[in-house]
Design a binder for these strands. Sequence first.
DNA 1: TATGTATTTAGAAAATTTTCTAAATACTAT
DNA 2: ATAGTATTTAGAAAATTTTCTAAATACATA
Lengths: 94, 94
Amino acid sequence: MGFAETFKALSDPVRRDILGLLKKERLSAGEIGSHFDMTGATISYHLGILKKAGLVFESREKNFIYYQLNTSVVEEVMLWLSELKGDDSDAEKE
Amino acid sequence: MGFAETFKALSDPVRRDILGLLKKERLSAGEIGSHFDMTGATISYHLGILKKAGLVFESREKNFIYYQLNTSVVEEVMLWLSELKGDDSDAEKE
DNA sequence: TATGTATTTAGAAAATTTTCTAAATACTAT
DNA sequence: ATAGTATTTAGAAAATTTTCTAAATACATA
């Protein structure tokens, strides 16, 4: 997976807003898009990046693709930050 | 400050590596640079971005500028992620 | 003051990212 | 099979980011 991809994904405001929407409930690509003033193609691009970063996953249903937050990857990022801080509640490599 | 700047700063591998170096001790710009295969000017550029994001601060001493990790901003980022996850240990806006 | 070391700033090239339009794919339902 | 809705893919333009070289600034000391 890699933190490079994950932090990169988190670095864009549109993508952070998308994650914020998905905090409450899963949403279809179209529902997500309706919150932004950009084309569906652009939203699809952002969803692809979030998906590659592991921050969301999709489930297909009828004609729709629903996206939902993957909290476990959010947790991994928090762990990285926690280790950076020196919060040594977890293993510290070498 | 803004999460945009902070996540953007965290999104680059060189900058994450710099933060990793600063985890143990404060280092001068030159000492930081010696760990990378890039010019001092480029390192300075990255340090500027980390500084603007609030992730590091500097202290000038003699001829040197020392950089150190600002753990409080790391904590703010963790809080943002924690709220995204729904970890409601802290206030939830509206 | 003159010289040397440490670091940043300026300007430009190369690479990457974000966005759009148009076309393609996928699935539904008539 | 046809038409309609939902979403993605392709290709290109615009914007941003990363890196370099060369020059500038800052400070220290001989």
